[in-house]
Design a protein around this nucleic acid. Structure first.
Length: 362
DNA sequence: CAGGCGTGGGC
DNA sequence: TGCCCAAGCCT
């Protein structure tokens, strides 16, 4: 008996079955990650929270070692709440977006002092804590507490916008995408539904060259049917930042280096740096040199050949590096301190400063 | 509410 | 190389 045409064109996954299709795929292809409980294992809200904060705008690969380090040093949220912010910043150094580390510590303190060391178990309660926004609150509520929430991150935005071919560009389309993503939530297993979409987005429904042939809901995807799935999600063009320049001063006193701590808020807040000029778009090197630390009457500065470049999210940076070596009797100027070069790894040094120091000492 | 806020990897 | 991107939040 010949196969009827109707059989060939019937979708294999009607829209109503999407949540089940997605969960079935997840049960076969889920990633095993350090912060994920295995099937049947109890979920630790602390681990879920810690991983979600670290994963904000950060790749799984980068987070791995940091998550392990944090968990070993502070096994519970109460342990973290009793730590000093400086210890937390030092442990976070290199991971970027340092306000996350400050908020992480503030959140642990709040959970310890205001909630007896127990995380709130609702989306609303979580949302009130520092560093926990709409996405993270929904993610923790769903994954750690089985609440019926669908967090919407970059992955889920992409999957959803392709599935429904959402034409409106982000960020205006965000509310629409959030509403559409919620339809992918099954009647149970909310946390698995969310993590399934994230895994799907990271491994199959990728920004470039998505592997649609492997997707469990490919024949149900509006963009895939049209063939322009790579163009989703639509986004508003972002404007580029202006190049800023400055001068950094690498001053040694024997085997010690002169450093200071940045202001608590703003760019690289609370992190360690070498003394340096302001970073300005209309930078003039002579003026920058006037902002060198005052050490003795005529410190002989040596300008290192070349520049250190660094690209922040919103502007590129070029730093020229001056070095000086001063005698042992020279004291650190107001607000600065000497630290042994051998212990620099223990400082809260952002990567841009590690580049500067390497350039200056090299 | 648009812009500030790090870093590393992929192409 | 230069650009885009990666489990966003805060103001």
């Amino acid at each position: 008996m010949p196969v009827s045409p109707a059989v060939k064109i019937r979708p294999k996954s009607p829209a109503a079955d999407r949540p089940a299709q997605i969960l079935a795929w997840y049960d076969r292809h889920r990633r095993r990650l350090p912060w994920r409980a295995l099937p049947g294992e109890s979920v630790d809200p602390y681990r879920v929270w810690l991983s979600e904060i670290m994963l904000q705008q950060t790749t799984v690969q980068a987070v791995g070692p940091y998550f392990t380090k944090f968990l070993a040093r502070w096994p519970t949220v109460s342990d973290l709440g009793r730590a000093s912010q400086d210890d937390v910043l030092r442990m976070w150094a290199g991971l970027g977006y340092y306000s996350r580390a400050r908020n992480l510590h503030a959140c642990a303190v709040a959970v310890l002092t205001d909630h007896g060391g127990i995380f709130p178990d609702t989306e609303e309660g979580l949302r009130s804590l520092p560093g926990i926004g709409p996405y993270t609150a929904a993610a923790i509520a769903a994954i750690a507490f089985a609440r019926q929430c669908m967090p919407v991150d970059g992955n889920i935005e992409r999957v959803t916008s392709r599935l429904y071919a959402v034409e409106e560009p982000l960020p205006k389309s965000k509310p629409e995408i959030v509403a559409l993503a919620a339809t992918l939530l099954g009647p149970a297993r909310a946390g698995d539904s969310a993590q399934a979409l994230m895994d799907l987005g990271s491994s199959i429904c990728t920004p470039k060259k998505p592997a649609c042939s492997l997707c469990p809901i490919n024949d149900d995807c509006a963009a895939q049917v049209r063939g322009d799935q790579e163009t989703f999600p639509r986004k508003m063009p972002k404007k580029a930042g202006t190049l800023r320049r400055g001068a950094a001063f690498v001053v040694t006193r024997g085997d010690e280096l002169l450093v200071r701590t940045r202001a608590e808020k703003g760019l690289l807040g609370g992190m360690t740096e070498v003394p340096q000029s302001e970073w300005l778009a209309g930078h003039e090197e002579a003026a920058a040199l006037e902002q060198a630390p005052t050490l003795k009457k005529s410190t002989p500065w040596h300008r290192k050949v070349g520049v250190v470049t660094h690209v922040f999210t919103h502007f590129p940076l070029e730093l020229v590096v001056y070095t000086a070596s001063v005698p042992a009797r020279i004291r650190a100027p107001e607000g600065m301190r000497w630290v042994p070069i051998a212990t620099l790894d223990d400082e809260a040094l952002p990567n841009v400063m590690r580049k500067v120091i390497a350039h200056g000492l090299g």
